[in-house]
Structure formats: structure tokens, C-alpha cells
């Protein structure tokens, strides 16, 4: 079972940690000042809902952003708003599992055509 072994690998300084890729689009990309990042997969962020909670509580020292206070607030606001999530390029609901190597994207409702 992948989920069981993940923690051990993540804690192993020799082995490579399990990673997920996060992508943000449109106004979310602009608001968060981030288009793409990688994040270490952890046992407690194994669903879309858990990942959203984790990101919305992001500490202000997460990146080199110059407006730390504003930045923190923006993550909370962004993940409380009307956003969609795709796991490996397919729309995923809050209970969708997240595993090592997944690409998880967050974006507003689409407006093409």
C-alpha cells in the first residue's frame, strides 16, 4: 500500500521524498503569485480537501514573497473561494485521493470558447 510506506520514505534522508506537483491558473495564479510548485507528499494530505486546508493555512514564510502578511491572507481567501481542482488533469472532488507523483491543479470556473 503506497500510503503506508510514504511516510517512511519521506522521512528517510537517503531516499527521495514523495512529491506532488501543484499548478495554479488564471486569477488564482495571479493572486497567489505562483504558477507551479512541487511539494512533499505527506500522509495527512492524502485527499483534495486535506490539501486545500493545508494550502489555505500556508505560513507567510513559505516563499520569498515580499508582502508576507498579504500573501498569507491571499492563500486563505483563494481556497475559501469558488475554485475547481483537477488531479492528473481530471476534475476531482474534495474526497479524491492524492498520491505520490500526482499533478494537482487549482483554478476558477472555466471561461473559454
Amino acid at each position: 500500500m503506497v500510503l503506508k510506506s510514504a511516510k517512511n520514505v519521506a522521512e528517510n534522508p537517503i531516499g527521495s521524498p514523495f512529491m506532488i506537483t501543484l499548478r495554479y491558473f488564471a486569477q488564482l495564479r495571479e493572486t497567489l503569485d505562483c504558477g507551479e510548485e512541487t511539494m512533499q507528499w505527506q500522509e495527512h494530505i492524502n485527499t483534495v480537501a486535506a490539501l486545500k486546508t493545508q494550502l489555505s493555512q500556508r505560513a507567510s514564510h513559505h516563499t520569498n514573497h515580499s508582502h508576507n502578511h498579504l500573501y498569507n491572507d491571499q492563500w486563505q481567501k483563494a481556497f475559501n473561494g469558488n475554485i475547481l481542482c483537477a488531479v492528473n488533469q481530471e476534475i476531482a472532488q474534495d474526497n479524491h485521493p492524492i498520491q505520490d507523483n500526482d499533478e494537482v491543479a487549482f483554478f476558477p470556473p472555466v471561461t473559454g470558447g
Binding site: P109, V110, T111, G112, G113
Partner: peptide, 23 residues
């Protein structure tokens, strides 16, 4: 395509720019 394909439009006018809301 309008509701499911992941495209996003931003409207740019002389007064400023704004992402278009889904209808």
C-alpha cells in the same frame, strides 16, 4: 467546451483588466 475545457479569458480595456466570470 464552454463549461469543461480549461480555458480562461481576461478582458483588457483602457480602464484596466479583469478575468471574465463563468456564466
Amino acid at each position: 467546451l464552454k463549461t469543461d475545457a480549461p480555458f480562461w479569458k481576461k478582458e483588457i480595456t483602457p480602464k484596466g483588466e479583469a478575468w471574465v466570470d463563468a456564466k
